[in-house]
Simulated scan of single mutants.
Amino acid sequence: MSEKVVRQLPNIIVPGKTIGIIGGGQLGRMMALAAKQMGYKVGILYPEKNCSAAQVADWQIIAAPDNQESLLDFAMKCDVITYEFENIDADKMEELNKTVAVPQGSTLLAIAQDRILEKAYLEMNKVNLAPYEMILTVEDIEIATSSIGFPCVLKTIYDENEEKGQRILYGEEDIPKCELLLKKGTCILEAWIPFERELSIVISRNAAGNLSIFPTTEIVHRDNLLEETIAPARVSDEVTQEVKRISQTIAEGLDLVGTIGIELFLTPSGALYVSELVSRPHSSANYSIDACSMSQFETHIRAICGWPLPEITLLSDAVSITIFGEQMESVERQIHLKPSWHFHYYGKNEARIGRIMGHVTILTKNIDKTLENISDTGIWI
C-alpha cells in the first residue's frame, strides 16, 4: 500500500489579528484600508498625531520609528509588522523580528536604503544599470566624468530623509556646485541615460513563492516626485515581457515577502536600465485600486499574512495623476465636472506647495484622449 502524502497548508495570519504599520503617510493609509477590508485590526507607529494612516487605523503609538522602547511596545501589540517608508534602521527591524513577525525582513530594506548595495545586488543578478562610480570628493567627480561623460547625475547613497539628494551635471562648470551634496557623505556618479520613457512595475510575493505581478506602466516625475502613471505602458510586448522577467528575477533573488516597486529607463534603442528599487508598495501602482482585479495594497497584506496571491488582471486602461498642495482648489472644482474620475484624498490638513495630497485615477478606453483631457484642465502642465 502506497503511503498517503498529507500536505499541510502554510500558517496564515487570520483576520481578526493585528497588523502594525510603521509609517503614517498615504501608502500606510491605503495599506490600512486594505487590511481593514480584509478583517484585520491595524496599529500605526508614527510621531505625528492623527496622521494620514492613523485616521483609518484602530490605534496609534505616537513615536519615531527609531525609538527602541516604542518599537518594542508596538511589537508586543501586533501579530505582524510591515512598513510604508524606507527611513527605518534595518538592524532595528532585524531585532524586532525576534519579537513579532516582520516578513519583509531587513535585507531588502538595507539594499533599498543604500544605492551602492542596491547596485551591487542588481549587478550580481545581471540586471542592466547605468555606468557609475563611487564618489567621495570633488576630485573623484573630475576623474569619473572623464569616462562617464556629461550629462551625468550625482546622487547621495543615503540621506536622513526618504528622498535621496541628487544633482545633474551638464558640464565641468557644475562640478564645484556638488560640494554641498558631498557633505552628506559618499555619493555615486551615474551616466545620464537618454531615455524615451520611464517605466515602473510592482510585484508582490509571499513566503510560498506565489507572485502577483502588476502591469508595466509609464511614469512621469516632477521635481523627483511621481506625477503621472499610465497603465499599461505604451511599449512593445517584448519590452513588457522583459520588464516582467527582470522583476521576477529581482523578487525571487531577494526571496521577497511583501511588495516591491522597480523603476526603469527605456532608451530609444529598446535597452532597459533599472534605476531604483523601492522596498514597499509603490505610488506608481495606486491606479490598481480602481483599475485592477486586486490592488497592490491588498496583495501586500496578503503576502505578509501568508495568503495565496492571485494573477493580476488589468480591468481597464487607466491614467493616475498626483494631486499636489498647490492644486487642491483647482482639483476640487473638477469634482463637479468629471463624474467618472476617481478622487482619492489622503486626509492631510496642510496643503503645502509640492506636498502630495491625493491622486486621481481615470479609467479609459483611449489613453491619448484622456491625457488631452487632463492637459485641458490646465492643472497639470
Score class of each variant (00 low, 15 high):
I168Y: 14
I168T: 13
L169C: 07
L169M: 14
E172G: 02
E172D: 15
E173A: 08
D174T: 06
D174N: 11
I175K: 13
I175M: 13
I175D: 13
K177M: 13
K177A: 13
L180R: 13
L180F: 07
L181V: 13
L181Y: 14
L181Q: 14
L182T: 12
K183R: 08
K183H: 10
K184D: 12
K184I: 01
G185T: 12
T186K: 15
C187P: 11
C187F: 12
I188A: 06
I188V: 15
L189E: 13
L189A: 03
A191E: 15
A191D: 09
W192H: 09
W192N: 07
W192E: 10
I193S: 03
F195G: 00
E196H: 12
E198P: 02
L199I: 02
L199G: 01
L199T: 03
L199F: 03
S200F: 05
I201E: 03
I201M: 07
I201V: 15
V202N: 05
I203K: 04
I203F: 05
R205A: 01
N206R: 03
N206F: 06
A207K: 15
A208I: 12
G209R: 09
G209N: 08
N210L: 06
L211Y: 06
L211W: 05
I213D: 08
F214H: 06
F214V: 00
F214S: 02
F214M: 04
P215I: 00
T216I: 09
T217I: 05
T217W: 03
T217H: 00
E218W: 01
E218N: 03
E218D: 05
I219F: 00
I219A: 02
H221K: 04
R222K: 13
R222D: 05
R222V: 02
N224H: 15
L225N: 08
L225W: 06
L225G: 00
L225C: 07
L226A: 00
E227N: 04
E227D: 15
E227P: 02
E228T: 05
I230A: 01
I230R: 00
A231F: 06
P232T: 00
A233F: 13
R234D: 14
V235G: 03
V235W: 12
V235A: 06
S236K: 09
S236V: 08
S236T: 15
D237Q: 14
E238G: 02
E238Y: 06
E238C: 04
V239L: 09
V239W: 12
T240P: 01
T240I: 08
Q241G: 08
E242M: 09
E242Q: 14
E242S: 07
E242Y: 11
E242K: 15
V243F: 12
V243Q: 12
V243D: 12
